[in-house]
Amino acid sequence: MILVCQRLLKNTKISGITLFPFILLQKPENLQNEILINHEKIHLRQQAELLVIFFYLWYVIEYYYWFFRLKNSFLAYKSISFEREAYAMEDDLNYLETRKIWSFWKYKI
C-alpha cells in the first residue's frame, strides 16, 4: 500500500521510505514517479525475504559499519547492500518479475 505522508516526511530529504507493508511518499506527485516506486518495491521484497525484522537489523548494522568506516552518513547509506541493489535496479520496471531471492547479497562490497 502506498501512502502520501507530507507531514511525517515534511522536514526530511526523504522522497520515499518503505516500512513494511507500506511505502510512504513525501509528496503526492511522487505517486507518478515509477522509478521511486520501483525502488521502494524492491525494498518491500527485501524486507519480506528477511522476515522484516532481520532486514531492519541488517540494515542498521550495515549502515553503522559503513558510517564508521567512511565517516560520512550519505556514503554509508549508499553503501548498504539493500540500497545498492535498489538503486542499481530501480530503472528496470520488470526487475521484480525476474529477481532471485536474496539478490541483494551480490551487492555486498
Rank of each mutant, 00 (worst) to 15 (best):
F74K: 14
S79F: 05
T98D: 08
A48T: 06
A76N: 10
W66Q: 08
M89V: 03
E85P: 05
N38S: 10
Y65T: 05
I17M: 10
Y107L: 10
I14S: 10
E49L: 06
E29T: 13
Y77Q: 11
H39Y: 06
W66P: 03
N72A: 00
S81M: 09
S15Q: 13
K108H: 11
L93P: 04
L31N: 05
D92C: 05
Y95H: 04
F74Y: 14
F22C: 03
L44K: 01
T12M: 07
N94E: 13
K13M: 12
L19R: 13
N11R: 14
D92G: 06
E90H: 02
F55H: 14
V52T: 11
R7G: 12
E90R: 04
E90M: 11
W66L: 03
L36A: 05
K78E: 12
L70R: 10
N72Q: 02
Q6H: 14
S73L: 00
I109K: 15
N38D: 04
L70D: 05
S81G: 00
H39W: 04
P28D: 14
A76E: 09
H39A: 09
F55G: 10
L75I: 01
L93E: 00
E49N: 05
A88H: 10
P28Q: 12
E49R: 03
N38P: 02
A86P: 04
Q46S: 03
Y95D: 02
W66A: 01
K13Y: 14
L50Q: 15
M89N: 12
L75W: 13
I2K: 01
E34D: 14
